[in-house]
Design a protein around this nucleic acid. Structure first.
Lengths: 153, 153
DNA sequence: GGGTAATAGTTGATTTTGTAACTAACAATA
DNA sequence: TATTGTTAGTTACAAAATCAACTATTACCC
């Protein structure tokens, strides 16, 4: 006597959306961002985009808004607003390019540099904490895969 | 003659923010979401949260807004609004629980089910495409690590 | 050179999200 | 059964993201 099965009792497909990579990536990204967000938010009143801009400038040095957008894949309007706020708070300086006066070069001030170092220290610690769950080989592989998925070659 | 080095020439630290896990996770998540977003956005006019709610209902069947929020870690206000929109568009039905009239049970309509199947098919194909860059062992490890980082045990 | 297209960055309008306060229903306890 | 506390879900308002249009400047090219 075969009873009627609901659609959810039947195995229709071997694909399980709970393992869908974009879904898992988003969940992991969101979860791992939250803890760190508290730090730059509470300690420096920064938004996520601002922290990203700050860390790109801290990591690679002087560059234009466009370059930051390209590297970090942040839309130019977001970069523009983040730059405004960071400049207001004296974390960065903006200087027009003399040869192409449309663009301007952004650079960390001493205060920006200090914030960057501070946050980088926290980030380092937090990264260690996240990596602690895995072997160093696993973490290396994870980073490499994420870089590839992110389109960073 | 030791020249003055700029701060970026010096190695101050072994930690490179370009490898910061939350950063890499976000980049990978964003990149991998974009392609798929186009599908549910253009094909069904859905937002990300709506697609997520739809797929939870499609995957696990009838459940309440609260359960969806708990499983997918989506805030209740986001779920509430997604449910409203999905119900307006007749992708889901809402029926009050007779024993506890605060909560209601959500279920896919035929149209919702069709959309779910369609999108799941696209997702499956896309997942395969993403996984193609790696060995199956690598992908399995990746998923498992992401689950752990996401706090899904 | 003059006209057109392209580029860097900004601004404004519209959507979407986040936060907090709220309603309605239920539970527990005295 | 009144009192107080919880819970499911909604709503209102503020914050932020998105999208399109805009300014100013440079590049192209006839």
């Amino acid at each position: 006597m075969t009873e009627k099965l609901t659609k959810h009792d039947m195995v229709e497909d071997d694909f399980d959306l709970a393992n869908f990579l974009p879904f898992l990536l988003n969940q992991a990204a969101e979860e791992s961002s939250l803890t760190f967000q508290d730090v730059y938010k509470n300690r420096y009143g920064m938004l996520r985009t601002e922290w990203r801009v700050l860390f790109h400038l801290g990591m690679y040095g002087r560059m234009t808004a466009k370059e930051i957008g390209a590297r970090a894949k942040i839309h130019k309007t977001k970069v523009s607003r983040a730059v405004q706020r960071l400049a207001e708070r004296r974390f960065i300086t903006r200087t027009r390019d003399s040869r192409d006066r449309r663009s301007e070069h952004l650079e960390l001030t001493a205060a920006g540099e200090a914030a960057y170092r501070d946050l980088r220290g926290v980030a380092k610690e937090y990264d260690r904490k996240l990596a602690r769950h895995f072997t160093s080989g696993e973490v290396a592989l994870l980073r490499s895969m994420l870089r590839q998925l992110a389109g960073i070659r």
